[in-house]
Design a protein around this nucleic acid. Structure first.
Lengths: 156, 156
DNA sequence: AGGAGATTATTATGTAGCTTAATAATCGGT
DNA sequence: ACCGATTATTAAGCTACATAATAATCTCCT
């Protein structure tokens, strides 16, 4: 729903825009950015019946065949119990299979199925497109800068 | 994106680091950043019994006395029904009061109570501290750049 | 003026994602 | 060979959010 183009871009209510004391807060802005990222994701992945979390798990499995659930949990900052249910979803969707580790009978090694590898190519394409939409307001240089800053902020 | 031929270049922990195909994705990094932001928030605000969402609503009310729930919902990208329950929490905590609008009997105008204004000063202090911790890995210049990029990305 | 439909707010209900706790199996050390 | 630690999964519970239902009031049209 478009707003009157000549007005200021926020709150065309009465006379003055409302003051946003959090507009300078990195944490708050990151939260808003993430809401938008999820919106974009759901819009683009609605067909494929996969959630952001499930997708990230699948991405790790494809990039690291034979990875173990614990490693995924650590990498994605989620609890191992979550990884298990997400993997269940991927298995029942036929994208991933669990394999026993002969040297570690506790562990299960995760592999993409042949079907999974094929589906992944499509998902990967959509994901790049989604990222492009998400960062559409930034120039390529700015986008690169943005990624660099995020990584620096996180890699502490 | 080729397969890990011999050795990826990131974090040589034990023998082979796992490959993170999402490490260049702005959307994924933003998600990780937000997880960390919430961690920091909860660590610092545990005493005050307030959630990130409740805090942001309270911040808007303090900065814009007489604001209406609908405006808050729009600004924070949450549903009006959520604003109502969050305001309920703030009211029962004695931080906010609802006031009738003589010109708009449907609307309720939200004000901080005297107690709320006092409590806010402490919250504001803690929030600035939390932001500082969150962005601790960045230099002041980088932090400013980061905020600029986030605002540009969002203001589309 | 009177009423239909739109707007604003709140309450009620449902659901998805995540956490912690419980269970099971296996490993490693002494 | 046992006992505590590790790995994985399942089960149960909680929280934040969305959608739907309800209520009140405003606007506009005839």
């Amino acid at each position: 729903m478009p707003k009157p183009a000549s007005e200021p871009e926020i709150t065309p209510s009465r006379e003055n825009a409302i003051s946003s004391p959090l507009a300078e807060s990195p944490a708050f802005l990151v939260r808003l950015a993430q809401l938008r990222a999820f919106d974009e994701f759901h819009r683009n992945f609605a067909e494929l019946g996969v959630t952001p979390a499930g997708f990230s798990v699948f991405a790790l499995i494809v990039a690291n065949p034979g990875i173990r659930p614990g490693a995924i949990a650590e990498e994605l900052r989620v609890k191992p119990s979550n990884v298990a249910v997400l993997v269940n979803g991927l298995v029942s969707a036929g994208l991933v299979r669990r394999e026993a580790d002969r040297a570690e009978l506790r562990a299960s090694l995760l592999h993409p199925t042949a079907d999974g590898s094929r589906v992944w190519r499509e998902m990967d394409r959509i994901q790049r497109e989604t990222d492009a939409q998400f960062a559409a307001g930034l120039t390529p240089a700015e986008r690169s800068q943005f990624v660099t800053l995020l990584r620096k902020l996180l890699h502490r």
